[in-house]
Amino acid sequence: MSLTVRIIPCLDVDKGRVVKGVNFVNLVDAGDPVEQAKLYDAAGADELTFLDITASHENRETIFDVVRRTAEQCFMPVTVGGGVRTLDDVRKLLLAGADKVSINSAAVANPQFVAEAATKFGSQCIVVGIDAKKVDNPKVASGFEIFTHGGRRGTDIDAVTWAKRMAELGAGEILLTSMDRDGTKVGFDLPLTRAISDAVTIPVIASGGVGTLDHLVAGVTEGHASAVLAASIFHFGTYTIAQAKDHMRRAGLPMRGAGDAA
C-alpha cells in the first residue's frame, strides 16, 4: 500500500455542543463533542475536525476546553476551524491540543495572515478553508466563487486562483466545502473538487454534500481529493467509519483498516 485516503468526520460545535446544520440553518443538537471524538477515535477515523460555528459571534473559551479535553483522550490528529482570525487564535488552539488550524474568512480579509501563520507555526498545521459556490459571475473565470461568513457573503474571488495563492502563501492543506452541496446529501461538487485538487500540489479535503458511501469514493476517484470529510452520515449513525472504509477499499482505494485504531 502507500499513503491511504483519509476519512475525516467533522463535528460542528456550537457553544460546546455538537450540532449539524442543513445549509447552516435549522441546527439540531446531537451530543457532547468530546464523547463523540472518543467514539470516532475508537472507530478508526483517520482525523477529526471541529468546526466552531459560533466562533464569529460568541465567546471562544468553550472550544478551547473542548479541544483540550479531546487532546487528553484522543491520540489522533485534530483540526479546528471557525473564527480563527489572529496569530493568537492559532497559538491558543495549538496549545490547547489542535494539530491543525483551519483559516477561512480571515484569509480572505487578509491573505498575508496565512503566510504569517505558516511562517510562525509551520505549513503542516495551517489549513485554509475554502467555501465555494457555483456562480455565473464574469469576474470568476472557473465558475466557482469564494463565499465567506457561512456562505452568506460573495467575494468576486475565483476559487481556483485563490487555492493556488493560498498554497503559495504556505497553506499545508485545503479544506474545500461546496456551499451549494453542504447539508444536501446529494454528493460532493465533483467539478469544483477536481478543479481545486488538480490546481494545487498540497492535499485537498473534499467537503459538503455526502449522503452515501459512493459519494466518498467519487470525491477521490473523480474529485481527486486526498481526504473526504463528512458529518451527518457518521454522526447520525447512517454509516460507520468501518463501513465507509470497507466500501472505499472495495472500490479500489487505499484505506487504513478501521481495526488499526485505538
Partner: peptide, 11 residues
C-alpha cells in the same frame, strides 16, 4: 501527482 506535504496514514 503526489501531494506535498506527505500527510496522512502510511504503512
Amino acid at each position: 501527482a503526489l501531494k506535498i506535504p506527505h500527510m496522512g496514514w502510511n504503512d
